[in-house]
Design a binder for these strands. Structure first.
Lengths: 193, 193
DNA sequence: CGAGGCCTTGACCGCGGTCAATGCCCGTGG
DNA sequence: CCACGGGCATTGACCGCGGTCAAGGCCTCG
């Protein structure tokens, strides 16, 4: 079950097999069915997840019931609500499986322990935060400088997986537009060919 | 010069005065005049800055010459282009002083050294990345769920400093709208009273 | 004193949201 | 096995937010 996480560590850090084995031992396998809610709005986040297989989203719901998606993770990615996790305060968003997924979960207690005692875990956490930083960075950039059509085209060239594996509704929720608008954007592209 | 950074460390971490003195010794005082460019688009970022006094922005310029502001830092804040810094690749944005500012700068070389050798620095970096994460998080949220007027009002209640210290042009660039729209939003609010 | 940048205001218009109708696919139960 | 219901996708009509372009006033700085 833990091979892909082990490989991820080997690829990104220099560490002994013993350290890797200990690192991985903090993570417990979990399965999530399609559409399963893994963290409720208002609930305190207790886990940090590595994704072996599948797809998971973090999102919130506005006054009109519209879903806005903050983050989507696929194979070899991570997901959690860091804010809720590190401060142990209620989350203001949901986490939910988009596809049936296999995950590795580390609990808050183990996370905190490993972070204070294990240098490999600290380095891992830094790497993860940096990757998230870059991701958030381009996300903010696309909102600042691109319109809806350009954002969609950007995803087509830079995050094709998202376009292919997310439903139109989810993709629209990620782009910050409505399902109807995304549908029109796609339709226009076909005409242009 | 370094008192505020020392205090920042004391407030956020448990560490000896000796450790703090060493930590702070990596940072060199720098002054920036109003509007001074501290990092050019295309240049490799060489410093990570702590702000003693003043205000600094990170921004990019689109095809039409419009400025979009990704991040603004005030006293006791940090600024850099982490992406460019950690990978030592050309930056795709500018960093520029909004007000005449006093800064503490740590070079990439010292940054890398301290990060690999000093646990206090590692903890400091994690804290900084986490704070940035939260900041980016709410930023993405406001783009996903709020219109321009609501984003402005959100800033009024949650980041009053930005509204007070930034020019309308800069504030508009941060909100992702034009100067003209911001002007109208403000005008409407007055009428409403 | 002149030049340039910032702010405001007006006129215009297009992108994208809203509401509604329709069709399609798929899971569930009679 | 088919009928039904619910969710997703598409399309049309309409309209308001916010961008664009332009003009004018004001302040700052050289």
């Amino acid at each position: 079950m833990t091979e892909s996480l082990e490989q991820f560590i080997r690829d990104n850090f220099t560490s002994t097999e013993k350290e890797i084995a200990e690192f991985v031992s903090y993570f417990k396998p979990v399965k999530a069915t399609k559409d399963e809610v893994m963290l409720e709005n208002g609930e305190v986040c207790r886990y940090f997840y590595f994704i072996i297989k599948g797809c998971v989203k973090a999102y919130f719901i506005d006054a009109k019931g519209q879903e806005s998606i903050r983050y989507v993770a696929f194979e070899n990615g991570f997901i959690s609500n860091i804010h809720s996790l590190i401060k142990q305060i209620p989350s203001s968003e949901f986490i939910r499986a988009v596809e049936a997924s296999e995950l590795l979960a580390i609990s808050y207690t183990d996370f905190k322990f490993a972070l204070s005692k294990r240098n490999l875990f600290k380095d891992f956490y830094i790497k993860m935060l940096e990757a998230t930083y870059l991701n958030n960075h381009w996300r903010i950039e696309t909102f600042l400088r691109l319109d809806a059509k350009q954002r969609y085209e950007y995803m087509l060239t830079n995050s094709k997986q998202m376009v292919q594996r997310l439903s139109n509704k989810n993709l629209a929720g990620f782009l910050g537009i409505t399902q109807e608008s995304l549908s029109r954007i796609k339709a226009k592209k076909v005409v242009k060919k």
